[in-house]
Every structure is written in C-alpha cells, then in structure tokens.
Amino acid sequence: MLRVVRQQCFCVTSRKASYQRGFFTLPNFSPFSDEPPATQTYHERKIFPHGRRDLYNLIADVGSYPSFVPYCTGSRILERRVGQDGVVTMDAELMVGFFAFKESYVSRVTCRPYESVQAEASTSTPLFKTLQTVWRFQPASSTSPHPSSGPPLHGEVRTSVAADSHSPDAGPTLVTLDIAFAFENPLHSALSAKFFGKVSTLMVQAFEERCLAVYGSGTK
C-alpha cells in the first residue's frame, strides 16, 4: 500500500526579484505601484514506494514535462552542463498554458542526483515576478512518522533510515515539493491565488500517475 502524508501551507512574505516575461499584462494601479509583490509558497509531501534514483530520473527529465506536468505544453533544453561534482545544470525553455494564458520562459534547472531538482525562472514575465519549484527526495521508513501539518521542513526530514546508508535504488522515498511565486501585478495575485493554490497538489498527483505509468505500483 502507498502511504500518503501531505501538507499544504500558504505563506505571504515580501520579496524583491528581477524576473520579467509572462501571460498578459494589465496596468499597474497606483495604490499598489510602490508595494513589493507578495510571494506565495506551497508545500506538499508524499511517500512513494520507489527508490530515489527512479523518482529523481522522472523529474530530471525536463523534456518529458509536457507528458505529465499540469499546464506545461512544451519544453526544450537550450543548454546542459555537468559539473565535476555530478550536478547537472540546464537552461530550459518551458511553455505553459491555462485558461486564456499562454507563455514561455527560460528556467535554470539544477539537478543534484537522487537528492533534488530545482527550477527557477531566469527570464522575466509580465505575470510572474518570481517562480521557483524544488523537488526533494529523501529516504523514508514505512514505519516512521512524518508530520502532516506545520511549516515546510526546509529539506530536513527525520526518518528512521540514515540517508548516507540508504541505497538510491531502495524505497520507500519521501518526496517533497515546494513552490514559490510572486505575481508582477497585485490584481493578478488577487484573481489567481485560489487557482494557483491547487497547482502544487495537482503536480504531486500528476507525478504519482507518471510513476505508476513508468514503474508500476512499486509494491509486490
């Protein structure tokens, strides 16, 4: 059986960034013109029966995103680099579309094998001031408790299995997803906050379906 523990939280903080491009542009309203954008954050977690290697490989395959990532209509790798430490860095153009919105932007994707995949918009958009997603993969025990409420764990999740002694091919694995974004225009934030609040949940559900399609249930 797949053991599910999920947390979603909503936070608003002030943050300045330097990103540009987006979906459509509405005029800034003077009452908001001097206010910094509010950064919205969402956190999800779920335990999968698969090993970290398999789960990491799915998320690191940026070219396959249109097959399972919600609202991603296209992707292409512009440049790929591998460091001496094995960390893979990519510049990828992602195309997204939902409702009347259609946009493409370049994202810097940093892949740390079997540990994490981080994507951060490196070109700016009229819709988003900032846009960042981070997937993390950590060894889990099927019997150890995992909190299902409270603030994000900032990459620190305690389990009964030591990470340095846990093979990347062995499951189960605790997968966490953190999304942080700020709209360029306050009106976009007000109109779209509820919609984007569901995106993190949809992404984890889509990832689970992708795992089932590629690797099966992972149980015997």
Rank of each mutant, 00 (worst) to 15 (best):
W135A: 00
I47G: 13
V4K: 09
S67L: 11
A180L: 08
P172V: 06
E35G: 04
R6E: 15
L2G: 07
R210K: 06
T41E: 14
Q132H: 01
L153K: 12
Q84S: 11
G22T: 01
E44L: 07
Q40K: 07
P37H: 09
G150V: 02
H146G: 13
P147K: 11
R3I: 15
H50T: 04
T39K: 09
G216N: 03
F10P: 07
R45I: 15
G97Q: 12
L78M: 06
R45M: 15
V117I: 03
P66M: 12
E184W: 00
L78R: 11
A190E: 14
P113L: 09
F23W: 10
V106M: 05
L58W: 07
F29W: 07
H166K: 09
M95H: 10
S217H: 02
S67R: 09
T110Y: 00
P126T: 08
F195I: 00
Q7T: 14
T13A: 09
C9S: 10
K220E: 14
C11F: 09
S144P: 04
S165E: 13
P168N: 05
V134K: 05
A119Y: 02
H166L: 12
F101H: 08
Y105C: 14
V199N: 08
T125H: 02
V4P: 04
S149A: 13
L187H: 01
C111Y: 00
T89V: 09
P172R: 06
T201V: 04
T173P: 15
A162S: 12
P145N: 10
F207D: 15
S18T: 06
C111N: 00
K129Y: 08
G150N: 06
I179H: 03
W135F: 10
E208D: 10
D85M: 06
Y114G: 07
S149I: 05
S64H: 07
S75W: 00
Q20H: 07
P31A: 07
D85P: 01
A162M: 10
A180N: 10
S107H: 02
